[in-house]
């Protein structure tokens, strides 16, 4: 108990103990429970799963691990497809965010301080307004008699409304739109620390501006790009709201599958198994993100 004693005695220990214990209880411990339930059977009871530990006739505890849920996930093509599709969608969205977000972050970082603050505010503002409402806005824009179709038809570019809502396209638009600020902000934070004189030095040594960008800016903003990409990619893999609202009924996203298994099918163990598989897939990326963050803050010191 030496460790505990030390914590209580030193004021420092007390400072971190509260958030530490909180996160241990409400963030880490639940994953163990999810893991446990992913190994149990579906039951029609409340809660709808069978306990792992059972008192056997001989008054001993028997652990009944079953891998049925996992086996089920791997045999049903639907889940595999959903996993692959989720990764594909998240990857493409991340690349799109990079293509749109990099020039924006760069432009903001190279503006005068006053302009920079205003532009930054404009990036942050949508981030503070409800994601749900902003995704909803795209329904109004994309649907058959929505704003975009109405405009295109009224100027005579098309004669029949384009089918955009409930498609893969709408889902990409929604994800990129929602996650763009998450990409821009860490990248901006990185670019803002850039010593722009390095670009002058590169030009002085014979680089054309685009060469200087490619040889100096891009490699030096690597950590910003990585941090932004992780902030888009990881949550996008498990995204539920956007596919549910904008994607078609066949938009197979793993977050949506988990939701449906849980709420519609009440298959808690299956949902748990889905969550565990998703976690196994995403944890390496999260650790990568953390190490990138650590490098960033070490670099800025």
């Amino acid at each position: 108990m030496g460790f505990l004693k030390k914590i209580v005695v030193s004021g420092r220990g007390l400072v971190v103990a509260l958030p530490y214990l909180w996160l241990l209880l409400f963030f880490v411990a639940p994953f163990l429970i999810v893991l446990k339930i992913s190994f149990s059977d579906v039951d029609l009871a409340i809660p709808p799963y069978k306990p792992l530990l059972e008192w056997t006739a001989k008054n001993a505890v028997a652990v009944k691990l079953n891998f049925n849920n996992y086996a089920f996930l791997f045999t049903d093509e639907l889940y595999l497809k959903a996993f692959i599709n989720s990764i594909k969608v998240a990857l493409v969205s991340t690349v799109l965010c990079l293509l749109i977000g990099y020039p924006m972050a760069y432009g903001i970082a190279r503006s005068r301080p006053v302009t920079r603050n205003i532009l930054l505010l404009l990036v942050i503002l949508p981030f503070w307004t409800s994601l749900l409402l902003r995704v909803y806005a795209w329904i109004g824009l994309l649907k058959a008699n929505g704003v975009i179709n109405n405009i295109l038809m009224s100027v005579g570019l098309i004669h029949e409304p384009l089918v955009m809502l409930y498609t893969q396209f709408a889902m990409y638009v929604g994800i990129v739109y929602s996650y763009l600020p998450f990409f821009i902000l860490p990248l901006y934070a990185n670019l803002e620390k850039m010593d722009w004189q390095l670009l002058e030095a590169a030009q002085d040594l014979g680089c054309k501006p685009y060469q200087a960008f490619y040889k100096i800016t891009l490699p030096l903003s690597r950590n910003g790009i990585l941090a932004g990409s992780m902030l888009v990619f990881i949550p996008a893999v498990g995204e539920f709201v956007i596919p549910a609202l904008l994607g078609g009924p066949n938009a197979l996203m793993i977050g949506r599958i988990l939701w449906d298994e849980f709420f519609s099918n009440r298959a808690w163990p299956v949902a748990s198994a889905v969550a565990i598989l998703m976690l196994i897939m995403l944890v390496p990326f999260m650790m990568w993100y953390q190490s990138v963050q650590a490098r960033e803050s070490a670099g800025s010191r």
Binding site: Q197, L198, E200, A201, Q203, D204, C207, K208, L220
Partner: peptide, 19 residues
Amino acid sequence: PPYLRPVNMMFQSYALFPH
């Protein structure tokens, strides 16, 4: 432009490429 001049500069901050 600077990249076409037969002139080089030593910057006050040195501007060494950190990578």
